[in-house]
Amino acid sequence: MTGLLYALASLGAFALLAGLILAIAQKAFHVEGDPMVDKIDALLPQTQCGQCGYPGCKPYATAVAGGEAEVNHCVPGGERTMLQIADLMGVEPKAVEEEAAAPRLAFVREDECIGCTLCIKACPVDAIIGAPKQYHTVIADHCTGCELCVEPCPVDCIDMLTKPELLEHWSWPLPDTKRSQIAHERREQHAGHA
């Protein structure tokens, strides 16, 4: 009988101790906000293009984390981003509806620019510099290619140019052997069905 009591007492003490540790841990390692939003936001390409129907990457991440939006709305992120988000959320992947266009850059034709600053206000990443009645220009290294500046321009002087391929950014393709081609095709197929 005493054995039983000892066991009960000691187990109870352990349970109390564990509960205490957990309570302290919860206070000590408390996380502000929803970590899921930040995690999803980190996976997004941050073009802030709004093609998902939300005004930016963070709002879309918030919507996905809240279960309001599907995981497949990020167009520039494409399949890779969709798979990563689905993996993170633990939901079924869904096919990306829109194909991502090749990365592009905005370019202001300065001769035609009237200096209205509308594109500067539209740029979500502050990649356009200029002042009223001065030429505006796009900082190529900062442009995400979101096209949000094209529409507001009253004189249509903004072109979307194909991003030039840099020698430093060139990378090796897969070896051109039959085996690697077959493997690649199989992978594509899997990704398509997933």
């Binding site: 936001d41 997004l44 390409p45 941050q46 073009t47 802030q48 930016g56 990457c57 963070k58 979500p124 990443v125 502050d126 990649a127 900062h142 995400t144 950014h169 060139w170 990378s171 090796w172």
Partner: peptide, 21 residues
């Protein structure tokens, strides 16, 4: 190596864009 470098570059660019935004 090229693909990893590409991904790291994209990630760094996304991070910089996020900060600016």
């Amino acid at each position: 190596k090229g693909q990893i470098a590409l991904m790291r570059r994209e990630q760094a660019f996304a991070e910089a864009s996020r900060r600016r935004s």
